[in-house]
Write a protein that binds this DNA or RNA. Structure first.
Lengths: 248, 248
DNA sequence: TCATAAATAATCAAAAATAATCAAAATTAA
DNA sequence: TTAATTTTGATTATTTTTGATTATTTATGA
């Protein structure tokens, strides 16, 4: 069996099950743990799956670049994403200088944009390409490109951000809680979010209802430092901590 | 059986199965391993399949969500670009810190790269994504993203380049002439090429035969400032001006 | 917190695949 | 036809991949 065929087999199993253990793969592929681990490492490095302790998961949890993965994400909270994206897009005027954070939620925002003269800066490769495709002026920040998310991160990225002062910024998040604020699983991406948000006159966090009362390892901003844009706010207590915009 | 018939048979089998092993081909073609390997090498070199350990896969199978804009350029001189790309890739060692200029020619170079430890910096969005897909460490420079070519340009890009000192750099060009050197139609892209090349210990310009004795509006480097990598040098006089490497 | 179990990374020898070499067979040119 | 050239397949040396072993790291529960 060719290496590429084994890769394909792993990805196929993963697509069906969403998560798989090393042991399951050794049985399915009739090969050793070493080989499975090496394969997972390679696939993780090229951003085609997410390696976790014990096995691997699909990318969908955080960000994603593959189209199938994006499709599954769409199905998760489709109406809400549309509502959030449209609501956020309404806020952008022709005079704005806008930062768009990498991640799937902000990618949906781009769908509702038209070229009204605003200029955009982003750390997401996909985002830059999508904005370009709409004929919108876009800058990308420089730095190391992360495999899984295709987001630009690292010290270069932070330094690159120093050149900009945004009127508005739109961010994704993995968790929101009153005490831990906005949080994300990845330290590098968290650092970029943090720096970018500090350079925005107004910051907006786009979050569907599943993100509330969740905490991820890295807090990148306090709860009061950004306006939350969501579909329908279920937990009203968040209005005590910051502004919340509800779509539709 | 004619060599070309064998080539065709291999490609036909491959088109159906997407991946084949050397052993399968020896049985299907009733020939020796040596011959199959030689055929695969030849087909790989001419870019008609992708040779992997154990056999071969189709080209498209791998990754590549190639864009339409780039796609049109691809077909211009495909075989020669493949030869040039391979030649260029051979020059990169694990210790190198490499700049890859945006453009279709340098995109071919990436096809022949494997992760040998070298680090890459590029101003091409597609190039960054392709390198990522191979699990190779990659940085992107910051700045304005140009619509048609998806290249990063402008003053930000020039400033971003100041952070780097490359051991090797690979560039595309639109024209080469003894007097006007290497030239390109776009001023912004020319400025980035010029700055990036100045920061390379060794610079290489990848050029198919159609580029010689042509002049574009903006000269970005003198003829002697880079080694030319081409398929087959038709106009020998260029050897008087700079080093020329010929593929094959 | 610490000890224990589980998972992973690192290492290395064996196995598999490949590249290099070379003589025989087939093809082409003279 | 013979001589020269190319192609082929066998042999070998080299490289890559694999799986077992060991050391290290991470998670879990007392």
């Amino acid at each position: 069996m060719l290496t590429e065929e084994r890769y394909a087999a792993i990805l196929k199993i993963l697509a069906e099950k969403k998560a798989v253990t090393v042991l399951e793969l050794t049985k399915a592929l009739q090969t050793s743990e070493s080989t499975v681990r090496r394969d997972l490492t390679a696939l993780h490095r090229s951003g085609r799956l997410y390696k976790v302790y014990g096995g691997a998961t699909t990318i969908d949890n955080n960000y994603s670049n593959a189209e199938e993965d994006m499709q599954t994400k769409w199905d998760l909270h489709p109406e809400e994403k549309v509502v959030i994206g449209r609501k956020a897009a309404e806020l952008i005027t022709g005079e704005d200088f806008v930062y768009i954070d990498a991640g799937s939620t902000t990618l949906h925002l781009i769908d509702f944009l038209t070229d009204n003269g605003a200029t955009f800066v982003t750390n997401g490769m996909q985002h830059a390409v999508s904005l370009l495709a709409k004929g919108i002026k876009v800058f990308i920040i420089g730095g190391a490109v992360k495999a899984v998310t295709e987001a630009v991160v690292g010290t270069e990225a932070l330094k690159s951000l120093e050149n900009y002062n945004f009127t508005k910024g739109f961010f994704g998040t993995n968790g929101i809680s009153p005490k831990s604020g906005f949080s994300t699983p990845d330290a590098d991406e968290g650092a970029v979010k943090s720096e970018a948000m500090a350079r925005c006159k107004s910051a907006f966090v786009l979050a569907d209802s599943s993100k509330f009362n969740k905490i991820s390892p890295i807090t990148f901003a306090g709860i009061s430092s950004a306006t939350i844009i969501t579909g329908r706010l279920e937990d009203k207590k968040y209005r005590d901590y910051t502004t919340v915009l509800e779509g539709e």
